[in-house]
Design a protein around this nucleic acid. Structure first.
Lengths: 301, 301
DNA sequence: CCAGTGCGCTGCGCGGAATGCAGCACGGTG
DNA sequence: CACCGTGCTGCATTCCGCGCAGCGCACTGG
């Protein structure tokens, strides 16, 4: 959009940290860019960049402005999507950021189902830990976030929430696979494979054992749940995940058993968006679909 | 703001209903304006105006776009206000639309109190009936609405609500001024002076008497509450208003007595804004002040 | 200590985009 | 039928924004 060019340039300068660098990226000369910025600051009545010896940085006013710029672009995209919607065929784009647990089964199935009804809509899916996911919402670089145990930033607006107890995951031949009343301490008798601390499952386990005599002592700590699911097939170890990522897993020789909530409280898988933002048509409809399907999955809060 | 010029022109054309007319208003030639619009439609990929023999009119896509333009301008104003707020002194503008009951006492007092603390903030106050008030919120032509018995449009977000029983208003010498247990039917024995049907007080009275044997039979129907307050000093008639507009009125020879709620249910005076909108700093702070003061006035819901 | 580097910024001359002017076709009006 | 007001377009002009080259500055590293 032509009329937002200056704003886009400002955003680029903020990202690059230098006028010359940004000018390079946008294929104009630094002088032209410099003058645009000066003209804009003149018009606004206040500088938006601090001039540093090695470049520029946004000042607080600039931070506010850049947030506005992102909101503008996102809202324009929404308007275009609504206009496209008027003319019959639904087109559009949905950008969603999610926790790893959603990648093996749930999200692919939902996106495919949605695309079967609206082939004109395409998707961007990014896997991020819970902190990064919320950051991407604030950036307007994602429309929706489907995150396990989000960190509750102020501008994360919850659209739906489902309880997700923590499951112990092991090989189907593992002795614990058949034990009645599986407890967390039983699992800790065996080598255990844990997600890195930035993940929600780990957070819940850490909390559960904060005052316990037996600390966690992972033989493998890693940031891939797929890795962990496969690892327990090679060593008689225990891993931990939430159920939504385990659908269909027993077909691959895995067993998974819920941990009692008196040992590890259930976490919450939450669908959210940036507070007060109006989503594009496609994203809003997809969010609606997700809410329905999540509700079917676990009708409790 | 330079970069929004095209958008502003589009809005002007929409308002004027003709390119030539809008061009005149904005001091450019119609050809220049015409080409800007064509270029914009080209860029957007769809027309935004219907071409009619006597001018142009927004098509649905254009309606969406104009709403976006208004939102964009309002949000930019918010950003500027927040930036101004960074630099210490609060400056800004508050645009509020209200029911007539607020004009004699409450709103002047609140605005003066706010301006005593923040002299850099100026105000626009417009008196509108409850339907028009909500329309002005949607337009972004008002930040806040303080309305008696709003019509509950979907995008009216309630910030605060206070109960406001209906009072009978009469001359201090009127026989009913001293009657214990004043009932609505007592009032109807006398000539009565009523607000026009679009006002909340009238709406409540109409509802209360829908199935009654005695219909309303106003000797004067009018759209000025000030007129009605003064009229009852000249004829031994009864009028009806809510208490917030009557503060200080007994000093002027008026008496006012609450009607029991079994006769006329209390209405609600509501402070609201456009749903999901982030208000400029000054407006948000003023809204906060209003909430506190309304709450002091009547701590019940 | 002093070139070297990368930065923001500015004077200058040019090219293209936006403007204004005049005029076209069209449709409703009286 | 003439007449008006509309959206739209060809053409000359103007002027805004661009790239080029170069300045002064602050930091860096040999």
């Amino acid at each position: 959009m032509r009329h937002l060019l200056t704003l886009e340039l400002i955003e680029q300068v903020a990202k690059a940290g230098s006028i010359r660098q940004a000018a390079e990226n946008m294929n104009i000369t630094s002088s032209a860019l410099n003058r645009r910025i000066q003209a804009f600051e003149e018009e606004l009545g206040t500088p938006i960049f601090e001039r540093l010896p090695r470049g520029v940085r946004l000042n607080p006013a600039g931070e506010l402005l850049v947030q506005h710029i992102r909101a503008q672009r996102a809202d324009l995209a929404r308007v275009r999507s609504q206009i496209a919607d008027l003319s019959g065929v639904r087109r559009g784009h949905v950008s969603i950021v999610c926790s790893q647990a959603l990648t093996p089964f749930f999200l692919p199935a939902q996106i495919a189902a949605y695309r079967a009804r609206h082939p004109g809509v395409d998707f961007t899916v990014r896997v991020r830990d819970r902190a990064a996911a919320e950051r991407e919402l604030s950036n307007f670089s994602a429309d929706l976030a489907l995150v396990f145990e989000p960190v509750y930033m102020a501008d994360f607006e919850i659209l739906h929430s489902v309880r997700q107890p923590v499951y112990a995951v092991m090989s189907a031949e593992h002795p614990l696979a058949a034990k009645p009343d599986l407890r967390l301490r039983d699992c800790l008798d065996w080598p255990h494979v844990l997600p890195a601390p930035q993940y929600g499952v780990r957070y819940l386990l850490d909390n559960a054992l904060r005052n316990a005599s037996r600390p966690l002592d992972p033989v493998v700590e890693c940031d891939s749940f797929e890795f962990m699911r496969h690892y327990v097939l090679y060593e008689a170890a225990i891993s931990f995940q939430i159920s939504i990522g385990l659908i269909g897993a027993h077909a691959r020789g895995l067993a998974f058993r819920p941990l009692p909530e008196r040992d590890v409280p259930a976490g919450h898988l939450m669908l959210g968006q940036l507070r007060n933002r109006t989503l594009p048509v496609a994203s809003a409809k997809f969010a609606q679909l997700l809410v329905e399907e999540l509700d079917k999955l676990a009708p409790n809060a």
